[in-house]
Amino acid sequence: MITDNIQEILDAILTGKDVNIVGSVTGADILFFIFSLVVAFVVATIAGFYIKRKFTHRLKKDTLKFFTRVVQVIIFIIALGIAVPSFLDISITILLIGIAGALVVMALSSQNVISNFVGGIALHYERPVSSGDYISIQDISGVVEGVKMFSTIVKTTSGVFVRIPNNQVYSGTVTNYYANVARRYEYDLGIRYQDDIGKAIELVRMALEEYTYILKNPAPDIFVSDIDANSVRIKFRVWFPASWANTRDDISLYTGILPRIKLALEKEGIELPYAQAVLHFADSTLKVQNRGV
């Protein structure tokens, strides 16, 4: 009985007969409704193609994708708004009430989805991060693969893809290392009290000068930062091209610099100090100096 009815409805739709299927809706109405959705789909596709062609050089890839999708969804909603009251015997008032009801239900049941969507729009507007940037958010550091409709995809330095909901990216603390073209790193090491500080600083400067990726300008800052219990601390701050430094983790940046400096200092007789303690005895006839731990 049910299959007969379905067969009858399908026949009515396929032949476009002027037979009422539901209420006053005829097969022809349903055909027109489907046709209008197909037209909306074609229009949305053409609009997406046009937007991509027109803005591909002006917008970043992920932003372009996001807004293309938003425009396509809007076109589809408008098409539904026109097609439903026109062909399905549903008045615009009922349609609007239906949409409002659906929105309320969606808002209540999918708060996170909506807040992620709104977060996505805000991210594209404010642009604290965008595709290709190296960022840190919460405990995750990596390169942004894309800001999607509801989430931001980050590829960590160990090659793992992490999906972060857009509202967390927008409302959380984000450190963007790629926003500037250069990044500064800070290193420090100690030399013995008896070593020539001026010579050590000059040797460090020369070793840094030879390193390709340390920028000539701004020049490295090299200075004595502290005289502690065992050593004279020399601190140096250097700048790297961000596009280079961001593709490496901090460990490789340290391992690339510090051994080079150590070798340069040791070659000139400047050694890194041992922990040491000087003991003074009351009768002052014996003095023991402990070198090494």
Binding site: N180, V181, A182, T212, L215, K216, P218, A242, S243
Partner: peptide
């Protein structure tokens, strides 16, 4: 040739150059 890079301008608005 040995390669060295530099920054022309400021870190936020400058350009990395082959120096």
């Amino acid at each position: 040739s040995a390669t060295k890079y530099s920054l022309y301008g400021t870190p936020d608005a400058g350009q990395i150059t082959r120096w």
